[in-house]
Design a protein around this nucleic acid. Structure first.
Lengths: 143, 143
DNA sequence: TTTAAAAATTGTAATGATTACAATTTATTA
DNA sequence: TAATAAATTGTAATCATTACAATTTTTAAA
């Protein structure tokens, strides 16, 4: 958590992007909650400590982090955008029962795709959907 | 094109989903334009032939096809939802310069992910982003 | 063929996330 | 301390999608 925060803080400094008080808060939240939060989840939490916080600030900060290559935007459902500070090579599984998102390791680079030779690839995403073991159990028990 | 249309029409019949005049139009469009259209692209085209067409009808039809497992919703950007009638196992590459989406073959099932044992997986998606060869060439020539 | 019920379609209004932007506040530098 | 730049706020606009009641069309039965 703390290591990741420091790594990102350093990278921002290197890119001459100021880490203001509110941006620190957002970055702390993202590092402490790597559970792919929505904008609203971030806003509601920080708003408790900073009552006159604007949603626009959250959007601004997230956009800056994305532009700096330090945050990844996750599009699984078309009506909810989520953010992921863990930028290692991994996929996402979304449970359609409880809504939780699970990370899983997958080395996408190990499949060279010959149809994409000559393409410049800057971003690779894998996401699965289905039902997680916990919800599968609940569904069974309900019957 | 025609084969795919017939396959889907049969499956709809099997599921007791009526293929009305407008639904036929939408399905024809999707089969003839497997280039991952947006709702608006579909609407604008069919609206030319059917002037008093409602957008809601397009949404309804697409939802019905998705529910029947015959259409796939693609979320790459968070502000544009696209639809894909080709349901074979393939990935999508989106060019961030020209916006085009390219299909590529990838056999996702060939990577068993041990972290997801016990999960019920119903949907697997892979998408990449970057710049396509055509746009790479244009960028080079502009300099 | 006529009629009643069911399904499809329309069109308007509501929703809700995101963005635009001008005004204000805060931080930085000379 | 003053001048400048950057960050933040808050309201209004945008835009895709959904909700829903009214209307039209289709289906199936009498």
């Amino acid at each position: 958590m703390k290591q990741k925060y420091n790594l990102i803080a350093n990278e921002l400094r290197r890119q001459n992007i100021r880490l203001s008080h509110l941006r620190k808060k957002v970055l702390e939240y993202l590092c402490q909650n790597p559970n792919h939060p929505t904008v609203d989840e971030i806003y509601v939490k920080i708003h408790k400590e900073v009552p006159n916080l604007s949603r626009t600030t959250i959007y601004n900060t997230l956009h800056i982090l994305i532009k700096a290559g330090l945050l990844r935007l996750i599009n699984i459902e078309d009506n909810e955008t989520r953010y992921d500070i863990a930028t290692q090579n991994h996929g996402h599984f979304k449970c359609e029962e409880c809504g939780a998102i699970f990370d899983f390791n997958i080395d996408i680079d190990s499949f060279p795709i010959k149809e994409l030779t000559g393409f410049k690839i800057t971003d690779k995403n894998v996401y699965f959907k289905g039902v997680c073991p916990g919800c599968l159990l609940n569904i069974k028990n309900d019957n």
